[in-house]
Structure formats: structure tokens, C-alpha cells
Write a protein that binds this DNA or RNA. Structure first.
Lengths: 153, 153
DNA sequence: TATTGTTATACTCTATAACTATA
DNA sequence: TATAGTTATAGAGTATAACAATA
């Protein structure tokens, strides 16, 4: 394997091979940037808010389904749900059909919190998005479902 | 390059307000997915590999500049660089002009490691990218520099 | 006095392994 | 015996605060 100038010094990606690396690093950095934009008004972590948003959109889910969806192991999700339950953002109930399963549902407080969080974060990100051209926003809008697909494959 | 209707009409994000939320959650999940795709052949973390890649591309940098670039605090970068130095992937040297500063440079081993890691990860992600249409790959390629811009703003 | 980097310490998130209870 | 979830424990990564060396 040779290390040509292109491979080590290029600014943007023009090849499919480079795309994977570039995308990976870009996603990492953007995620860290988003994580540091912290919220003052509630005590929930980024991960907890993501779970809340999932429940808000998809309705009641089992703990296992939530763990799969968020790509974490069940013990991690138990921890997150404990945190959310203690704050009154979600409620647990045993499944009627299989009493090993636990169904998690969002509460009214949870819904309000999701809406407020979305508004606040959108304000931050939207400010950045506002600096983009219409074409660039279109790129991001198109990228979202592709990301979902890759992540869930 | 324009992103016309077929690429931008999605069921999820049709408004700019929703775009910020969707993008944020999608980035989080994809990042977690990428993080779980672990490497068997070296002992470096995702963050350490990102630092190595930055040094490979941009050349020698001070610790502070690296911290800024990767969006972490200086103590975190010190830790990461210690790890890289111990493994022989980078070398420290004091700056000639300002002896408070420490310059970090990638070694030959570091360069080889970056290339190998890139190849391996690309294989994983490229497999997913291979399942996409040419248009979809074009979207991702266009998204990368936009992400960089948002993250570094 | 201000700045660059390091050390000390603690917190958050995540994972694996062992356990409980249902199926 | 297998599965869903929990508890116990440990590791990785990050941050803030206090410190050292230099400007």
C-alpha cells in the first residue's frame, strides 16, 4: 500500500474510499459539538433525550426494543429509563401478554420536555443551518434518512 | 449539483425546524454505530485514531490546536496524546519559539496505522455505502464539508 | 499577570457477567 | 432451557480545578 499525496493531504473527498473515513470523522466531530451545546433547563443527558424523543414519536416500546433502536445494550437502557422514570418523564408497566417484558411510555411531562428541548436545540442548530444555502440544507435533509439506514443495518 | 424533489422529499423532515432535531438524533445514532464497529488490530480508541488522522493530514500541531480541532478540553487531549506517544504513534517536541507549547507530530508507525485503520473501516462503511445509489452517495459526499463547517463554527 | 500544558479527581455513559422472573 | 430485564462491577472518555513552567 502506498501513501500518495492525495490520500494523506486531500481536503475533501472525491473517491468512495475516502468518503467512509471522512464521513466517520465528520460525524464524530459534529456529534461532539452537538453534545457540548448543553441545556440549562432540564437534567437529562443527550442519550436520555434521544430515548424520550423516540418514545414521543413511536409510542410505547419495550425496554429491549428501545435498546435495539438506540443501539445500546439492555443494561444501559435500564439505567437511562430509571433516570427518566425518576424524573417523571416516562412510566413503566408490565406487558399483558408476556410479563417478562416491560413497556415504557412517555408522560405528559416527557412530551412537554421533548418539545422544549427540540425548540432550544433547534434554535442553536437552526442558527447554523440558517447560514447555509437552500441547496446545502437540502443535502442535510436528504442525508438524515440515509444515516438512519446505515446505522440500523 | 442540485438536490431536487426526489432527493429532498422525505417523510421525516419536511420543515427546517424538524431538520435540526432529526439531524442531531441521526448523527448520534450513526456515531454510536460506528463506535461499536471495533478494530481488532490496534489498541487505539476512536478518539485517538481521529487525532492520528488529523496529524496525518494537517502535519505537526500544538496540543492546544489539536484540542480545539477535536473539540475537547486540553486535559483530555493530553491524555490521548500520552496514549499515542506511549505506543510510538506520535512524538512530542517543545516549540522553538514558545517553550510553553508542545508540538505533536505523527511517526511512521502512526502513518501506517492511519492507513490500515482507514482501509479496515472503509471496508465496513463502504459495504453500507455500496448499498446506496449513486445519488445517495453524492448526498453524503456533499454533507461532509457542511458538517465540518457546522462543527467548527 | 496571562497563557500552555499537565496532574488530580470525579462524573457520565457504556459494556460484560451474574442474577431473577417469567415463558 | 431460553428469554426479558435488572443488578453489580469495571472501563473508556470527558470535564473542572489546581498546579507548573514560560511569556
Amino acid at each position: 500500500m502506498t501513501y500518495s499525496k492525495d490520500m494523506t493531504t486531500q481536503q475533501h473527498t472525491t473517491t468512495d474510499a475516502g468518503l467512509a473515513s471522512e464521513l466517520r470523522l465528520a460525524v464524530m466531530r459534529l456529534r461532539r459539538r452537538l453534545a457540548t451545546e448543553r441545556h440549562p433547563d432540564n437534567d437529562l443527558s443527550l442519550g436520555a433525550m434521544a430515548v424520550l424523543a423516540a418514545l414521543c414519536r413511536r409510542g410505547e416500546m419495550t425496554l429491549g426494543a428501545l435498546a435495539d433502536f438506540e443501539r445500546v445494550q439492555p443494561p444501559s437502557m435500564t439505567r437511562t429509563v430509571n433516570c427518566l422514570e425518576k424524573g417523571g418523564y416516562v412510566a413503566r408497566r408490565p406487558s399483558d401478554t408476556d410479563r417478562r417484558q416491560v413497556l415504557i411510555a412517555i408522560t405528559d411531562l416527557g412530551r412537554v420536555t421533548v418539545a422544549a428541548d427540540r425548540e432550544r436545540r433547534d434554535a442553536w442548530l437552526a442558527k447554523r443551518l440558517g447560514g447555509l444555502s437552500a441547496d446545502e440544507r437540502a443535502v442535510l435533509r436528504a442525508a438524515v434518512p440515509i444515516f438512519e439506514r446505515i446505522a440500523n443495518e
